[in-house]
Design a protein around this nucleic acid. Structure first.
Length: 490
RNA sequence: GGGGCUAUGGUGUAGCUUGGUCUAUCAUCACUGGCUUGGGACCAGUAGACCCAGGUUCAAAUCCUGGUAGCCCCA
C-alpha cells in the first residue's frame, strides 16, 4: 500500500487520522508558515461556505440583518470591555505602518463586542428602534498561545456572530430559544452533528454574560467540542458601553442584549471527525462540493465500445447536471481503482461506473460513499435512484453519528465510577451535583483534579433534568440540586 | 500552559549515532513517448531538495546555540 490514502485507522489514532484527512482530502493547507493561520482550500472551503449559507439563511429568516465592521478596534473600547466583562483576549496590535509608528495603536478584531457596542450606543435612541438584530460573517484573530490545530484551535478563525438588542429581558430569552432552534436546524438537521444544549455553570460562563448556552458535541476521541455559544448579556454591556433608549414610560433605560456565535471552524472539525471514516472524508449530500462522480471503464482493444462508454458517460453527466446535481465525469488518465480511492478520500457521496457490462445491460453501477457495495440501476430511472441514494447517504451519516453520541453518554452516581468512566471512555457522563452557581465551583475544581481534567459542561437547556430528593453531589455529598454533564474538552 | 518528537525535491522518505566518498537514497507526483484501464498498472527518458541565522571545524544534511514551523501526548 502506497502512502497515498489515509494510513491510520480513525479509531486507533484519531489525532493522526484527523491531521491526514485535513491535508489529504484538500481541506486546508498548513504550509503558509505562520502559526495558527491556515489556507482554506477550495474543496474544504466549499463545505464551509455551505455552513455559512445555512446559518445566514436561517438567521435572516429570524429578522437579522447583515452588517460589516472593520478589522480595527480602538484600544479604549477593548479596555472598556475588559473592565466590565473581564474578557482579555490576546489581541494583535497594529503599531506601525511602513516605517512609521502609528500615533494611536489599534487592535485586530477578536470578537465583536468592543467595536459593535460603541456604535450601538449611537444608533439606538428609542424603544421603537428595537428590537435590533445584526450579524456578520468575518474573520477574527487573536493570539492563542496553545498548540494550534486546523479547524480546532488557531489564531485566525472563521467567525459568525449575531448581536441583538431588546427592550426587555423576556425578548432576550425568546432569542436564546431561537438560537437553540437555529443550532438544531443547521448543526443537527443539515450537518448531521448531534449535540446537547447546555446552560453553562456560573463559573464557566462568558464573563460579560449573565448566562452562557452552548451546543456541545463529542469528537471520536470522546472529547467535548463546543460548537457555538449564545450569551444572555443582560445589561452588562449596555451599561459598559452606555447603550440607552427612552422607554414607553418616557424613562431612560439600558437595553437588554444577547449574542450568538456559532464556531464555523468547530463545526467543520466536527463534520470531519464525526462523519469521516478510514477511507477519508464523508460529507452530507447537500454539502458536498461534488455530489456524483462518473468513472468510465474502457479497454484499448475495444475501441468502438469505448466510444459508446464515453458517450454514455457524457450523456448521463449532462442529464444529471440538468437536474442540478454537482457532477463530474472523471475521464482522466488514471486507472479506475485510483479514481475510486481519490474520490472516496475526498468524500464524494455517489460514484457511477460505466463500462462494457453496463452498456450491454443498459444499466449503470453505483456505489454509495457510506456503503461497501455496488448496485446496478437502470439508466431511465437514474433520477429517482439518485434521489433515493442521497437520502440513504444522509440517513447513514446521521444514524452513525447519533449512535456514537448516544453510546458515549453515560450515567454515574459515584466519583470512583466517574473516574473510571472518564478514563475508559471519556464522552459525556451525567452526575448529580450540588450547585451550578459560584458556590459549586470548589466541587468542580475537585472533580477536575480527580478525573484528570474533566469539566462540568452544565445542565441541559431548556429542560433541565430533575434530581431525586435523595441524590447527593458526587463530590461533597450534600444534596444534589442538579444533574450535570461531565466531559473532557478540547 | 507543561512535556516529547520532527524539519532533506511538489509529496512521502534514506542518510545524522561515529562530520569527509553526499556529485544526497528510494518511491511517488509533474513533464515527454509508448503501452494500459472492472479497486491505488507498467517501461524508458527529463526535471526537481538538505527550514532560517549564527557557531565549532581543514571540512557540516550530519555536532552546538538561537529562531521559525509542524506533529504527538498531557493539562
Amino acid at each position: 500500500m502506497k502512502e497515498l490514502g489515509i494510513t491510520v485507522k480513525k479509531q486507533e489514532n484519531f489525532s493522526e487520522w484527523y491531521t491526514q484527512v485535513v491535508q489529504k482530502a484538500e481541506l486546508a493547507d498548513i504550509r503558509l508558515g505562520i502559526q495558527g493561520f491556515i489556507v482554506h482550500k477550495p474543496w474544504g472551503f466549499f463545505i464551509i461556505k455551505k455552513i455559512y449559507e445555512y446559518l445566514e439563511e436561517e438567521i435572516e429568516k429570524q429578522g437579522h440583518s447583515a452588517f460589516l465592521f472593520p478589522v480595527a478596534v480602538k484600544e479604549e473600547n477593548l479596555k472598556k470591555e475588559k473592565q466590565h466583562a473581564g474578557f482579555t483576549p490576546n489581541v494583535f496590535w497594529i503599531t506601525e505602518a511602513g516605517d512609521k509608528k502609528i500615533e494611536e495603536k489599534f487592535a485586530l478584531r477578536p470578537t465583536g463586542e468592543a467595536q459593535i457596542y460603541p456604535m450601538y450606543s449611537l444608533w439606538f435612541r428609542s424603544h421603537k428602534d428595537l428590537p435590533f438584530k445584526g450579524y456578520q460573517s468575518r474573520i477574527s484573530v487573536f493570539r492563542n498561545e496553545m498548540t494550534t490545530r486546523p479547524f480546532l484551535r488557531g489564531r485566525e478563525f472563521l467567525f459568525f456572530e449575531t448581536h441583538n438588542v431588546f427592550n426587555s429581558h423576556n425578548e432576550a430569552e425568546e432569542q436564546i430559544k431561537d438560537d437553540l432552534e437555529t443550532c438544531r436546524k443547521i448543526i443537527y438537521d443539515k450537518i448531521k452533528i448531534p449535540f446537547l444544549y447546555f446552560k453553562r455553570p456560573q463559573w464557566d460562563k462568558f464573563k460579560g454574560a449573565d448566562h452562557t448556552f452552548t451546543p456541545d458535541t463529542l469528537m471520536p476521541d470522546g472529547k467535548r467540542n463546543q460548537l457555538a455559544s449564545t450569551h444572555d448579556l443582560g445589561q452588562n454591556f449596555s451599561k459598559a458601553f452606555n447603550i440607552k433608549i427612552r422607554g414607553k414610560d418616557e424613562k431612560e433605560q439600558f437595553v437588554w442584549q444577547t449574542c450568538f456565535g456559532p464556531g464555523i471552524w468547530r463545526i467543520m472539525a466536527a463534520l470531519i471527525g464525526i462523519h469521516g471514516d478510514d477511507k477519508g472524508l464523508v460529507i452530507p449530500f447537500e454539502m458536498a462540493p461534488l455530489q456524483i462522480v462518473i468513472i468510465p471503464i474502457t479497454f484499448s482493444d475495444k475501441k468502438s465500445e469505448s466510444k459508446k462508454i464515453i458517450d454514455s458517460c457524457v450523456k448521463i453527466e449532462n442529464s444529471l447536471k440538468k437536474l442540478c446535481y454537482r457532477v463530474k465525469f472523471d475521464n482522466s488518465e488514471e486507472t479506475p481503482g485510483f479514481k475510486y480511492h481519490k474520490w472516496e478520500l475526498q468524500g464524494v457521496p455517489i460514484r457511477i461506473e460505466i463500462g462494457p457490462k453496463e452498456i450491454k445491460s443498459k444499466k449503470v453501477s453505483v456505489a454509495l460513499r457510506t456503503e461497501n457495495k455496488k448496485t446496478q440501476i437502470t439508466i431511465s430511472k437514474i433520477d429517482k435512484e439518485i434521489k433515493k441514494l442521497s437520502l440513504k447517504l444522509d440517513k447513514d451519516i446521521k444514524d452513525k453519528a447519533d449512535n456514537y453520541f448516544k453510546n458515549n453518554t453515560r450515567n454515574s452516581n459515584s466519583l470512583d465510577e466517574l473516574k473510571e468512566l472518564v478514563k475508559k471512555y471519556r464522552g459525556f457522563i451525567k452526575v448529580p451535583f450540588c450547585s451550578v452557581d459560584n458556590d459549586g465551583k470548589s466541587c468542580a475544581d475537585i472533580l477536575k483534579i480527580e478525573t484528570d481534567g474533566a469539566d462540568i459542561c452544565g445542565t441541559l437547556y431548556p429542560k433541565e433534568e430533575k434530581t431525586n430528593p435523595n441524590q447527593k453531589c458526587i463530590i461533597c455529598n450534600k444534596k444534589a440540586n442538579h444533574i450535570v454533564y461531565v466531559a473532557k474538552s478540547y
